[in-house]
Amino acid sequence: MAFDLIGLRAAVARHGRVSRVVIAATHGSTPREVGAAMLVWEGGQSGTIGGGKLEYELARLARRQTAPRRLSRHALGPEMGQCCGGAVEVLSEIYDAADVEALADQTVIARAGAPGCAMPLAVKRLMTRARAQGIMPEPQMIGGWLVEPVARPTRALWIWGAGHVGRALVQVLAPVPGLHITWVDTGADRFPEDIPEGVSVLPAQDPARLIGHAPREADHLVLTYSHALDLELCYGLLAHGFASAGLIGSATKWARFRKRLAGLGHVPDQIARITCPIGKPELGKHPQMIAIGVAAEILNPAPDEGTKNKSSFA
């Protein structure tokens, strides 16, 4: 887990005052791990620290909180009536736009759970390693200080097409930690009004021209409204390079694409790097079912590199 500064910034922009409630330490059996967090504002919340009465009570307290920061301990069995039996230490912090802006350049965020608690030497060392060597620490409480690395995207996914399946894929995949989605289609009117956080929208009359801007280690999903555009994108991606590429379509479509790509100069081993069809056909053809199957491939790639027509996201 990591400090989701992008999500916090978006919540503050929409709601003004926002409380971030994060699990700072655990003792025994608990529903969530250190670093699990939720955002709370008047009339709503996002994220989860485990649900149940613990989450309900801490959300209620966060809305009433006046101190900038509050550290508390909760025994899940005796205090909350939950079966986990362990205990959690929870840090609840209030943020506004100025607070978020002050964190803009941070890679690791460390703060005391209570006023007047000097930064321990161990925390200083972690901060120095992070800044000088890029070694990010795990979320942890040290000497009354909570240390959290700031979440950074570690994987780039380009989704080509904003139709029904493209929209379903973005809805399913946008919340995945560490994933940054670039969403491409032929015009701004192709996209929905509400774009999830962590998604960059790129309308372009000629989407294939954007291929050169994609990192060569990016994953790609091609599912536009046009078979001709799909073919052009597959051709361009094979020339550009990618970590993985998936194409929506039937076995018949893929057979035709293989023949045409070969005719355009790509050899069979190159063409075979593209997976088609994508998802899990047994789940059905509904856009949400396709999205669930593709998400499963992305999050749990096939372990056998030699498996024929394996997931392209290995």
Rank of each mutant, 00 (worst) to 15 (best):
P281L: 07
P215Q: 03
M1Q: 11
S92Q: 08
V34M: 14
V40M: 10
E79M: 15
F3M: 02
G249C: 03
R260D: 01
W41V: 15
V199A: 13
T307R: 09
E33H: 07
R260A: 06
K53D: 09
A98R: 13
G166F: 12
G306T: 05
V176H: 02
A102N: 06
C83Y: 04
M127W: 03
G81T: 02
G306L: 04
P281F: 03
T48H: 11
Q205M: 08
V222N: 01
T128C: 08
P153K: 04
G43K: 04
W254Y: 08
P78V: 05
K280N: 10
P78G: 09
A75T: 06
A243Y: 01
I211M: 11
S46H: 05
K285Q: 12
V21R: 08
C117M: 08
D304F: 14
A67S: 15
Q82H: 14
L58C: 10
E101R: 07
R60M: 10
L173T: 11
A102S: 15
L264K: 05
G86K: 01
A272T: 02
T66V: 03
G265L: 12
S250N: 05
P301Q: 05
L58R: 14
L202N: 01
V40F: 08
E193H: 11
W183T: 02
T128Y: 13
R155I: 05
A314R: 04
I248M: 12
D99F: 13
A314M: 05
G236V: 09
G16K: 01
D206Y: 08
M136L: 15
G166S: 11
P192Y: 02
G265T: 10
Y56S: 03
C84F: 11
F257Y: 12
K285A: 14
G47T: 04
D185N: 06
E148M: 13
D96Q: 12
T128R: 10
A239L: 06
P203C: 10
R129F: 06
A114N: 03
P281I: 06
L8E: 00
R155G: 02
G187E: 11
A62R: 13
F3K: 02
K308E: 08
I159G: 07
L223Y: 01
V170R: 02
A228V: 11
R273Q: 14
P115V: 12
V88G: 04
